[in-house]
Amino acid sequence: MTYTARDQWDQHYSDGKGFRQLGERERELLAEHTPLPDGGGRALDVGCGIGELAAHLARLGYTVDAGDFADSAIARAREEHANVEGVRWLHLDIEHDDLAPLYEEGYDLIVMRLMYPFLRDRGRVVHGLGERLRDGGALVVITPVAETMPEERRGIALDEDEIGLVCAGWETMKRLDADGLAFLVLRGPCHTDTRAVEKRATTGHALTGALAIVTDDTGRVLLGRSRCGSR
């Protein structure tokens, strides 16, 4: 299942579907590697779906902003977690919407669970989120890996090269296993000189090239030479 349009996602959630439930190992790793800061913390759940992770973080003591671009996802999250305090549900497209609703003073924890492979312009999004981390904060990316996915579901997973690009440009990174999911904990300066490999058309990238000119002592320019020595 690889959706490319918002209406497909709306239909997905309207049909009562969701994603893999938050596992016990994921809960353990979150508690171990992103403990609640003294005095409380603020978290952002990007692509929150029906809100299971956001509700879990709120129960841990975080004040949570949880956003998704599917209307039906946010509607279900509000209904299914109506008794959970400390969550602000946002109808928000992290790639295309004005991000003014996000908390100006930043976040101690930003989580992207089971949604990173669906981004079109991954590098720009991750860079922007990294800039919203408070000192000592962490970006956690939880994702399926390609080697454990059947070919027809490859679109929802990352291969090793893609995971390497996610982790590049950070001061520290930890890669952990959460029952077959890659659990990436990224801290420090956000991506400044890296861009992730895209699966689909992006919103636009600059291309950089390199050129070398070879001349001899008289200034003649070498246009090309075969192995046989002809020019």
Rank of each mutant, 00 (worst) to 15 (best):
Y3H: 12
T4K: 12
R6D: 11
D7K: 14
Q8S: 13
W9H: 07
Y13D: 04
S14D: 15
D15T: 02
G16D: 12
F19Y: 07
F19C: 00
R20K: 05
L22E: 01
E24D: 14
R27A: 14
L29A: 00
A31H: 11
T34P: 07
T34M: 00
P35Y: 05
L36M: 10
P37I: 07
P37E: 09
D38W: 01
G39H: 03
G39Y: 10
G40D: 13
G40H: 06
G40M: 08
G40W: 08
G41H: 08
G41E: 14
A43N: 08
G47D: 09
C48Y: 12
G49A: 11
I50G: 00
E52P: 07
L53Q: 02
L57W: 06
A58V: 10
A58Q: 10
R59T: 15
R59P: 04
G61L: 04
A66D: 04
G67E: 13
S72V: 13
A73H: 06
A75W: 08
A75V: 15
A77S: 10
H81T: 07
A82W: 06
V84H: 02
E85I: 02
E85L: 04
V87C: 02
V87H: 00
W89D: 06
L90A: 04
H91E: 15
L92S: 12
D93I: 12
I94C: 01
E95H: 07
H96E: 15
H96W: 08
H96A: 15
D98C: 04
P101M: 09
G106V: 04
Y107V: 01
D108Y: 04
D108G: 03
D108T: 08
L109E: 05
L109H: 05
R113W: 03
L114Q: 11
R122D: 13
R122I: 14
G123H: 09
G123Y: 09
R124I: 09
V125N: 00
V126M: 14
V126P: 01
G130T: 03
